[in-house]
Write a protein that binds this DNA or RNA. Structure first.
Lengths: 193, 193
DNA sequence: ATTCTTTCTTAAGCTACCTTATAGGTAGAC
DNA sequence: GTCTACCTATAAGGTAGCTTAAGAAAGAAT
């Protein structure tokens, strides 16, 4: 059962009571997502928070020249969603799309709020998850401004080996902020050196 | 009294009991910081979370070429600190330095943890603060990869007018990820157009 | 007031990365 | 199993932003 992955995930952070387990089983919905299927599109309000049980998704921005800029990937045990839109209720500027057939669990905003009120310990977990995401995001800002594309590529490889072996170079290039062509020349240079 | 700024700040988010107010008065320490004084240096562990009552500070990374990259500014009612180091206990790679004479309030990690345990409602506030910081950080990643320097400069001006009128172009350039010289040529181009 | 420091500007030459185009290889979909 | 869409590679020419250097202007310190 997909929901068991989430229970295990929470149990790694804290101990859940039976009551909490049954609450979670009640409010999270399982969905099967096909490759290339969207779970969020620009203009939609993000009303669901998503936990990945199996598969891989990407969240990205499309600029005025129709170019995609990957903001985040999510594989097993990762959370994904446009938090800004989720909280403000404003339309999102982001897309979330499966790059592999995926199994996900989703919770509605109202249920998540109920969860925080009825079981306050979840505030702590989600505060920590958000803090970790913020740390990664800040590290990426620093790196984008202080490293060149090759250094960023090498760092991505080391930091996310499981992603690196799983997704295409086109996706990695979009995450690193370079064109796929340029990533290809970087890779060529690296094999020579 | 500086602490009153913080009480007011919290009261804007929720209602504090007398007990909570006296806890806050007990665990936060007021400090006066001079221009150019550091409250965190690379290699130190960040053991304090900081609230700015008055003044302006910057948090930045120094790369291997000794160049500074501003990650964040903080003026009145903003929080600043290296959350990564604060939570992991690992040495920070960042500096936090006052760019104006400042009055700050600081809380120790142990006291903040006690605060979360004894008064769970603070988990919620800090979760929301962190979520907002994450949203800004993500927006900045997207912008850095999809806008040029002039667009980023214009956006900074619009988004943070109070900062823009207060800090030097050198600091803004370091935040935008360009050299001060190049920011100067951008500004010149803008007056012509 | 004067010196010292920092900020802002200008300009010439340089580099990292982009654009466009072309082509072969690989994998999903029916 | 074949077809089609996507992915990767390569190369030539172009541009945004960097480096270095040097001077003017504006603050800060004595």
């Amino acid at each position: 059962m997909p929901i068991e992955s989430l229970i295990e995930y929470f149990n790694r952070h804290l101990t859940l009571s039976d009551e909490e387990v049954s609450f979670i089983e009640k409010v999270f919905t399982t969905r099967q997502i096909k490759r290339r299927q969207f779970i969020l599109q620009e203009g939609d309000v993000c009303k669901l928070n998503t936990f990945v049980v199996e598969g891989c998704l990407k969240m990205y921005y499309v600029d005025e020249n129709a170019k995609e800029h990957n903001l985040q990937f999510a594989i097993e045990d990762w959370w994904i969603g446009d938090i800004g839109s989720f909280h403000s209720g404003e339309p999102s500027k982001l897309y979330i799309e499966a790059i592999e057939p995926s199994t996900i669990l989703q919770i509605k905003k109202e249920d998540q709020n109920r969860m925080f009120v009825e079981f306050p310990k979840f505030n702590r977990i989600f505060r920590v998850i958000t803090e970790n995401a913020l740390v990664s995001s800040q590290r990426r800002i620093i790196q984008n401004s202080s490293s060149n594309a090759e250094e960023r590529y090498i760092d991505f490889m080391k930091r996310y080996p499981s992603l690196f072996n799983r997704i295409s170079n086109v996706q990695i290039a979009s995450y690193l902020g370079v064109t796929p062509e340029f990533l290809s020349t970087i890779r060529k240079r690296m094999t020579k050196a």
